[in-house]
């Protein structure tokens, strides 16, 4: 096992980069869902959404 780690320690770098990319995609999706939720609540209550909330969609 120690031998395996000695030979493949460098794999930690690309694998961390992959995990980080996945995590960032998930965070971005969560932010988008929360924006959509706020927009939906505003739409259901018949109010116009503020411009900065709509600008979040363009990110």
């Amino acid at each position: 096992m120690a031998d395996l780690f000695r030979d493949f320690w460098w794999l930690l770098f690309p694998m961390s980069a992959m995990a980080l990319t996945g995590f960032r995609a998930w965070l971005k999706d969560r932010a988008r869902r929360e924006t959509m939720q706020a927009l939906r609540e505003l739409a259901e209550s018949g109010r116009e959404p503020p411009a900065y909330l709509l600008a979040q969609l363009q990110r």
Binding site: L39, R40, A43, E44, G46, P49, L54
Partner: peptide, 16 residues
């Protein structure tokens, strides 16, 4: 969300 706008008879924002 666009359907919600359509149901209430309003125009959805262009950003959507």
């Amino acid at each position: 969300l666009i359907k919600t706008y359509a149901a209430s008879g309003r125009e959805p924002p262009p950003e959507l």
